[in-house]
């Protein structure tokens, strides 16, 4: 019996070594270790043995079983690993082929710059205000110290709906609408569409965007106006941006100014872009005119403020070096996809 066991062990170990599939291993296991297997058959004859031989043979039989089981497991593991490796080889792909990306839409360049500006100002205490695009003459002009017949009306070619209704030519009416409804301190930014009767060409559009800003509180100075707008310019462009403030005139601010940034192209030396001036105008601003505060029921002796307004499209065109404003409203996807 001992010999039988040894020979089964040897034969089976050889069979395992020779096996090439999981099925072969499985049949070996069944044939040797199964209920009807060779080893089981031998064990069933144990009863015929001498009692003193039984433990010896029993131990030997167990050892054979364990050895075979271990060998089977190991063989399986090796085979699994081989199979896995083979599968991975089969599954190899050309990773240099392009991905199947979902299409993600693009933000309009005008929106990109607008969002950037709104983020800058909300970060320093401004809220965003919104109002009608078809506006009362009162808000667009009268309350802003531009009575009927005022020459400033000529500078803003106005679309009229009726004698007292216009398409707003500026976002400044939001100053009035805000001050009528809100007590100081006020810090608002009012972006939006404005309209002027300029025919569409490379540099003009009858519909464009302005961004209006208004601050009213106790003790606001022109220094605050300068500091706030300098900070804005540095955030929008970069830390080294140089700006200058020049006296100007707007009916609804006094004193008034225009802010120029140093020309990006020539660094202030003067070139074709800045028409030799070294600076490019980007916005108009000033201290809120006391008459405007009064119209809104705010006491100019108690409160002061500043306001500013800028044209968005010009900032966008400068940022992306776009030379034709029509590209912004044509919405050619080949254009939009560039941003």
């Amino acid at each position: 019996m001992k010999e039988q066991l040894t020979s089964i062990l040897e034969k089976t170990l050889n069979d395992i070594k020779a096996a090439e599939s999981f099925e072969a291993l499985d049949s070996i296991r069944v044939n040797v270790l199964g209920k009807k297997g060779e080893l089981t058959a031998i064990l069933k004859q144990m009863g015929k043995l001498d009692p003193e031989m039984r433990p010896v043979i029993g131990a030997l039989a167990n050892e054979v079983r364990q050895t075979l089981e271990t060998a089977l497991e190991e063989a399986k593991a090796v085979m699994t690993e081989k199979a896995t490796t083979a599968k991975l080889v089969r599954e190899a792909i050309d990773v240099t082929m392009p991905g199947t990306a979902p299409v993600i839409g693009k933000k309009h360049p005008t929106s990109i710059v607008l969002d950037e500006i709104c983020d800058i100002f909300t970060g320093i205490g401004f809220t965003i205000a919104d109002g009608p695009e078809v506006e009362l003459d009162y808000y667009n002009f009268e309350a802003l110290n531009i009575p009927k017949g005022h020459p400033a009306r000529d500078e803003q070619d106005t679309f009229y709906i009726s004698d007292n209704i216009v398409l707003r030519t500026q976002t400044s009416p939001m100053q009035i609408r805000t001050m009528e409804n809100k007590k100081p301190p006020i810090r608002i930014l009012a972006p939006g569409r404005v309209f002027r009767s300029d025919a569409l060409d490379a540099t003009h559009s009858p519909v464009f965007h302005q961004i209006e800003g208004l601050v009213v509180a106790k003790g606001i100075t022109m220094g605050d106006l300068k500091g706030t707008l300098e900070l804005f310019a540095k955030r929008l462009y970069d830390e080294d941006t140089k700006v200058r403030f020049r006296p100007h005139h707007f009916p609804f601010t006094e004193p008034s100014a225009e802010m120029d940034v140093q020309c990006f192209k020539c660094g202030g030396k003067g070139c074709s872009l800045c028409k030799g001036e070294g600076y490019i105008e980007i916005l108009g601003c000033g201290m809120v005119h006391p008459k405007v505060l009064e119209v809104c029921g705010i006491d100019p002796d108690e409160y002061t403020g500043f306001a500013f307004g800028m044209g968005l499209e010009r900032l966008v065109m400068r940022k992306y070096k776009i030379d034709d404003i029509r590209l912004l409203s044509e919405n050619d996807v080949r254009f939009l996809n560039q941003f």
Partner: peptide
């Protein structure tokens, strides 16, 4: 201000009562 020079006016930021900004 214009004869003194706008560029001579010292720049300050956010004077006055503070406000909470945002959307």
């Amino acid at each position: 201000a214009r004869l003194y020079g706008y560029d001579m006016i010292p720049s300050t930021i956010n004077a006055g009562e503070t406000t909470q900004g945002g959307y």
